[in-house]
Design a binder for these strands. Structure first.
Lengths: 342, 342
DNA sequence: TTGTACGCGTTATCAT
DNA sequence: ATGATAACGCGTACAA
């Protein structure tokens, strides 16, 4: 027992009457070990309440027991859901989570990230969209020897490195629901160009309209950048059309809230005069009036699964590899969709 | 240069033709050092791109360069704002942020936290409300020798360990604003019992009414637990009163959104039939219809300041100690408050 | 002002 | 199957 209070591997070794290395073997589940020795050591470990010092392990292994969350996602709820899912997976393990936001579009971003990863010697990182769509980042992790798992709206990588939602299918289904309600003039508030999620969702929308034989004039698509304000502006353009759409699909809830505002400003009743459908099912969807019908993707489960992949893949044959790579989204029906006005 | 790729202190020492210790002195800004030696060593450091290995430092110093964020706050936006503020302070320093949610009311919470702090040897922790109100947690940090700064809605600790907002004054001011608009029957959706913030806000509300000579019947206070649903329910109780209040102050925005819902469900127009005032200025406040007037507290600035206190207080005479301990909130006027109906 | 020798707590090498 | 000894990279007495 040192002055710090915590027992060390030396204390265990001395009391158990074995060498440090043997204790180390017990800790690291080495297969070649006398069963009796193992029992004896484990007994001492339990009695002492010994826990290996992470700092010393990190130094010796040249690898920290930290999982990084690298993100440039502006949506608080999304980020926090991911953190929740990760922490769920990390609970009762030796791993901790460190959060690393990166500046989107910064020219030194990649270099900064490299320094961070090299310095901290992370065990692995979870990449959130949209930065997870950047192949250079994945390659960087590979080069440095840092495990990684990407989250995204399509399979951009192999199953061991990817956890994806089926955004395209989900939006196609949601749009079909709108069509089934009788809508023919359906506007789209699209996500920003260059985002894979925006592309996938837009494609799903276009596919649904195409399958139903509904024309999609360019004017019925207004691009936003996933923020409330951009949704407000985009909806303005759509609602000032003549004739105006009877329904609008918004590629996320924030922008959908903007659409609700734009409708309210014009004295339009939702859903009587205008149906609105969002994407993400963030809390705001349920908390605005009227409650927003939207598409929910299992973000926390995905993050949990991603984290398990990360730490599970530590040794081959571990649990992590069994984690699913594709997750299904579901349509949440609330009060913002109805049949079009007669 | 080792096989790992990164240069070590030994490389620097060898190339500069000095001993490790001298390099160490340069790194740690030791005052007793020949100016020329320092220049030479710094030159080599720059040329090599040497950065000290955090793991080795952590082992030698028995202290990690990690700042923990300990929280049991359910509001995503609040937590993320704090993270943002912290990371701003930690940017361009050697510190990283690790996030540690704790289960509220778990009987083993304190013990878990102790293990976490002892194991990880954090440099310091930032305590978010409501767990920051728990004195036992602060004492635990003290005992373990882990720096801490608490965030809260009142000064619960000395300036070196506290960053507080003036919730009571802020709510008193906000309520006076309601009164100035002509309201006399003002309802309160209070926060949960046992939360300091709920207590402070309620007190401010009561003070304002008392100063104005307005009676506050017990029925005009409905308690919620800071969630949307609880706000919806509480507002229901208030709005079914006869006569019903012409204005409602809600102790946070989430619950205020619930009040808006309750009003909409009863066909009440906001703000014509009912004025609503929230607290926090989370994004939902600006994104619901009508835009919610609310009280904004500078959460990210507070967190930033708290983090600076943490890392600045490292050596006496450092910047951290100059950081303010009290932060002012401001009333944000949007569209949810008007004069009462005639 | 600078250097030597050792400690921090663990894992890895190579014996036995 | 187990142990002595050397890394890992940095800080600190203590000496010079």
């Amino acid at each position: 027992m040192q002055k710090t209070g915590q027992p060390t591997i030396n204390d265990v070794a001395r009391i158990a009457g074995v060498s440090k290395k043997t204790v180390s073997r017990v800790i690291n589940q080495s297969p070649l070990l006398n069963e009796e020795t193992r029992r004896k050591v484990e007994e001492v470990i339990g009695g002492l309440g010994y826990v290996p010092n992470p700092q010393a392990r990190a130094l010796a292994l040249r690898r920290n027991f930290l999982i990084g969350l690298v993100h440039d996602n502006p949506n608080a709820q999304t980020v926090l859901n991911v953190q929740q899912g990760m922490l769920e997976a990390l609970d009762d393990t030796e791993f901790e989570m460190v959060v690393r936001p990166v500046r989107r579009g910064s020219p030194t971003m990649l270099e900064d990230l490299r320094h961070f990863l090299e310095r901290q010697r992370l065990f692995g990182v979870l990449l959130m969209p949209p930065i997870s769509e950047n192949d250079a980042v994945a390659k960087l992790c590979d080069d440095i020897g840092c495990r990684y798992v990407r989250m995204g709206s399509a399979m951009l990588d192999d199953e061991a490195h990817m956890v994806a939602s089926n955004d395209r299918d989900a939006v196609r289904g949601a749009t079909e629901y709108l069509i089934a309600q009788g809508h023919r003039r359906i506007g789209l508030v699209a996500g920003p160009y260059g985002f894979r999620s925006a592309h996938e969702r837009r494609s799903g929308f276009e596919e649904a309209l195409g399958d139903a034989g509904i024309a999609l004039p360019r004017s019925m698509i207004a691009e936003g950048n996933y923020t409330f304000e951009s949704g407000l502006a985009a909806a303005g353009r759509l609602l000032d059309l003549t004739p105006r759409p009877t329904a609008i699909f918004s590629c996320n809830d924030e922008m959908a809230a903007g659409v609700v505002h734009a409708a309210a400003q014009r004295g339009l009743d939702v859903p009587r005069d205008l149906s609105i459908l969002g994407f993400d099912d963030t809390p705001i969807a349920a908390h605005i009036w009227p409650p927003l019908s939207t598409v929910r993707w299992p973000i926390a489960s995905m993050a949990r699964s991603a984290a398990l992949k990360l730490i599970g893949g530590a040794e081959p044959g571990d649990e992590g590899v069994d984690e699913p790579a594709m997750f299904m989204s579901t349509l949440i029906r609330r009060g913002s969709v109805a049949a079009p006005p007669a």
